[in-house]
Design a protein around this nucleic acid. Structure first.
Lengths: 103, 103
DNA sequence: ATCACCCATTGACTTTTTTCGATTTGAGAG
DNA sequence: CTCTCAAATCGAAAAAAGTCAATGGGTGAT
């Protein structure tokens, strides 16, 4: 029996347009906020808000270095998300017809 | 260049606790609304709302039969969701260090 | 110490999502 | 045709998510 709240948190990362744009930027490697921000139409505080959600989901990791914070995809977090989706939708799921509706 | 709004729609299916519970029920085969409802703490109209979102995401398909509508996982829709996540998080994504921050 | 810069947090506001009761629609059954 | 039942839709309210400007905290440069 799964923890649905925890699972939902993981997929929160992928259900917002701005976050998908951020993830797209991260696919080519680590970026710091200032660089991410250049290609987005949002304020700095809004970006920070989204980065928090991405980090909380486990898909992204932040790495502090001096003044900067570098964000990158978490290999483990990404794999976990894919495994989760596999569990939820995997081919082993039954697609048989319904028999529960007592006509 | 991806259509982020369309992609976000797919993952909307997985980022809500009630919808995850519904998907869990559907893993064991088709169910009609009345059966799904029994195991959820929501009203009939709310369930209908969630079923619409699930169907719009492509992950679930509704099949009308007389008075009943049977809902089931869409094999194609589920595969598409997994492929999408693979593209967004796949191992081919770079995890190299940032070089864009001119120190 | 002071300044400039990067980023997180706060508080207020707007927008979107979720929820429900009531109503409507559509499909058998009598 | 009328009645009943399953499910969708509507309208309104509540809850949650997203947004920004302003502020604060930490770091490195001067």
């Amino acid at each position: 029996m799964r923890n649905h709240a925890a699972d939902a948190k993981v997929f929160k990362a992928f259900c917002d347009v701005n976050r998908l744009q951020i993830l797209e930027q991260l696919r080519t490697g680590e970026k710091c906020s200032c660089v991410l921000l250049e290609k987005l139409q949002i304020s700095q505080s809004t970006l920070s808000y989204h980065m928090k959600i991405l980090c909380d989901s486990g898909v992204v990791i932040g790495r502090s270095e001096g003044k900067w914070t570098h964000y990158g995809l978490s290999r483990d977090g990404c794999r976990y998300a894919r495994e989760l989706l596999e569990i939820l939708t995997g081919e082993n799921a039954s697609t048989g017809n319904c028999c529960s509706c007592k006509k």
